[in-house]
């Protein structure tokens, strides 16, 4: 490769990387500079550094004076973990059946999981709103857990099925001859062998719940039942523009999920190409 071509390629890549990083850096800058609004400056380096926004976000309190931020973090963590657990349990069992067993309705079921991804959330949302309203579950996390895990299931089923398909059948046959039951084959052979795919689908379910905004915004109205996305949106909602607090909150919320994402991203790629995208 010629020298100029190399420089040109690096130039392109640096340009795009800068474009990618710049908005994020501005948010980070905002989170450590005082004031509610952005500065009229393009430099990503803050002129003055303060951690006020962070302490304000973390130290926020509800009407009764109890710490609000940690309450909301707890909401989000519980919500996301519950969603992941429920989603993983439901998805892995059915993906196993879809991958390994032949039964009438198999194709219909697989297709259903594909088509369900096309349901617009609003179509589900209105009935759910009505149903939850009637059940008096509007302001609770239970409803959201159920909704989130079912949103995550179709993707998880397809990804896991794609991965299960790559595990040689002979391994299970060997286990069968060795004396394993169907459940032991699933639990002691297939599940341990699918750890990468399970990690990816778990990440996906977790991200679904951790990042979901609109259903939470619609269904939750009490401050103490908010999730992190709703809290963040309220900083820059129609009536307020507290960009400083938003930025600090955004950094706090993004760090755990981005860390998870980067730990698992290698698998994410293979997981996606193995099953999810093939559809």
């Amino acid at each position: 490769m010629s020298r100029w071509k190399t420089i040109l390629i690096h130039g392109f890549l640096i340009f795009f990387t800068a474009m990618t990083l710049y908005p994020v850096l501005l948010v980070v800058r905002k989170s450590v500079t005082p004031g509610d609004n952005f500065e009229r400056s393009l430099s990503p380096i803050p002129s003055r550094v303060t951690l006020d926004h962070y302490s304000e976000v973390i130290g926020s309190r509800d009407f009764n004076g109890r710490p609000l931020f940690w309450r909301i973090v707890l909401n989000s963590v519980v919500l996301s973990l519950a969603t992941t657990l429920v989603g993983m349990f439901l998805a892995s069992t059915s993906a196993y059946a879809f991958s390994r067993l032949r039964f009438p309705g198999r194709r219909m079921g697989l297709m259903m999981f594909l088509v369900v991804q096309m349901f617009p959330a609003t179509l589900i949302m209105i009935p759910l709103y009505v149903i939850l309203d009637k059940l008096g579950l509007l302001d609770s996390l239970v409803g959201l857990v159920l909704v989130y895990s079912t949103t995550a299931i179709p993707f998880c089923v397809w990804t896991l099925k794609g991965y299960f398909d790559t595990i040689p059948r002979e391994i299970e046959e060997a286990a069968w001859i060795d004396g394993a039951t169907r459940f032991q084959m699933f639990w002691r052979i297939v599940i341990p062998l699918s750890r990468p795919a399970l990690a990816v689908t778990a990440l996906f379910s977790f991200m679904t719940a951790w990042n979901e905004y609109i259903l939470a915004e619609t269904f939750l109205s009490r401050e103490t039942s908010y999730t992190l996305p709703v809290m963040l949106q309220h900083y820059v909602g129609t009536h307020s523009t507290q960009w400083g607090k938003f930025a600090a909150g955004a950094v706090l919320v993004s760090i755990p999920v981005m860390a998870l994402f980067y730990i698992l991203q290698k698998h994410l790629v293979s997981g996606l190409t193995a099953g999810g995208v093939k559809g």
């Binding site: 795009f16 990618t20 948010v27 993004s254």
Partner: peptide
């Protein structure tokens, strides 16, 4: 690793972040 950053960010944060970028007065 740097280029997949937007994928890792929660997308509502991305959206609000860009809303700030396009703000008339202070937007970058």
């Amino acid at each position: 690793v740097l280029l997949i950053l937007p994928w890792a960010m929660p997308n509502y944060i991305t959206a609000l972040m860009w809303k700030g970028m396009f703000q008339q007065q202070y937007g970058a």
